[in-house]
C-alpha cells in the first residue's frame, strides 16, 4: 500500500500535492486522512482504486510486464535481458542485467531514464493501463536511491538541529517520492514540494515551526 504525507496552505492544495507525489491522475484514486486542519494543512493520502481498496495489480500482470520488456530488449543487439525485481501498488520494478546493461544506463542514467519513459508509454498500451514501470539497469537506480536516502537523512538531521527548513535541488517526481517516503515516519520532520516542473523541489521542514 502506497501512502504518503503531504502539506499545503489549504486542504485543497495539500490534496493536490499528495496527488502529485503519488503520481495519481485523479483525486478519486486517493483516500485522505486530515492530520492537521490548521495551515499548513497536513493530510495522509493512500493510493486506492475506485473501489476504495489499495491499488493491487492482477497477480500475473507483473510477470507479463517483465516478459514483455524482456522480449523487447532482447531485440536490441546487445547482451541484455530484463528481470522482474518486485512490485508495489501499481509499480513494477524491472532491472536490465547482462554484460551490456551499462550501455542502456548511460552517463548519469540518461539512457535508462529515456528507456523508462518509453516503457511507460508502451506497457500501459500493451499490458495494463494502470501499470507504471520502474526500470533499473545494472543496479544504477538502486545505488542512486540508496545514496539519495542517505543524503536526505543527513539533511533531515541538520534540519532538526537547526530548526530551519532545507530546500533540496530540483528533482524528477520519482526522486521526490523517494525523499517523501524516506522521511514520512520521522515525527520531527515533514516534507512537501514546491515550484513547477521541471524545477519542482522538496522542502524538508521541522515540525511545529
Amino acid at each position: 500500500m502506497t501512502s504518503i504525507e503531504a502539506t499545503g496552505n489549504t486542504l485543497e492544495e495539500a490534496k493536490y500535492n499528495a496527488m502529485q507525489m503519488l503520481g495519481a491522475e485523479s483525486m478519486a484514486q486517493l483516500a485522505f486522512e486530515v492530520l492537521d486542519e490548521n495551515s499548513p494543512v497536513r493530510v495522509r493520502a493512500t493510493l486506492v482504486e475506485e473501489t476504495g481498496q489499495p491499488y493491487v495489480l492482477a497477480p500475473d500482470t507483473t510477470r507479463k510486464v517483465a516478459d514483455y520488456i524482456d522480449r523487447l530488449v532482447k531485440k536490441i543487439p546487445l547482451h541484455v535481458q530484463a528481470v522482474l525485481r518486485g512490485s508495489h501498488s501499481r509499480y513494477v520494478e524491472v532491472e536490465l542485467v547482462g554484460r551490456d546493461a551499462r550501455l542502456l544506463v548511460g552517463k548519469n542514467g540518461e539512457v535508462l531514464e529515456k528507456l523508462q519513459y518509453l516503457f511507460n508509454t508502451l506497457v500501459p498500451k500493451v499490458i495494463d493501463p494502470h501499470v507504471r514501470v520502474v526500470l533499473d539497469g545494472a543496479g544504477w537506480r538502486r545505488r542512486r536511491t540508496e545514496r539519495l536516502r542517505n543524503q536526505v537523512i543527513a539533511i533531515a538531521n541538520e534540519v532538526k538541529r537547526r530548526g530551519e527548513e532545507a530546500l533540496l535541488p530540483p528533482m524528477p517526481p520519482h526522486e521526490r517520492r523517494i525523499v517523501h517516503q524516506t522521511l514520512r515516519d520521522d515525527p520531527e520532520i515533514y516534507t512537501y514540494s514546491e515550484g513547477e516542473e521541471p524545477n519542482r523541489y522538496v522542502v524538508i521542514s521541522p515540525r511545529g515551526s
Partner: peptide, 12 residues
C-alpha cells in the same frame, strides 16, 4: 518517444 528510440540506437 523518438528521442528515446534514438538514444537506444546510439547506445548500440
Amino acid at each position: 518517444i523518438v528521442n528515446a528510440l534514438r538514444t537506444v540506437a546510439q547506445a548500440v
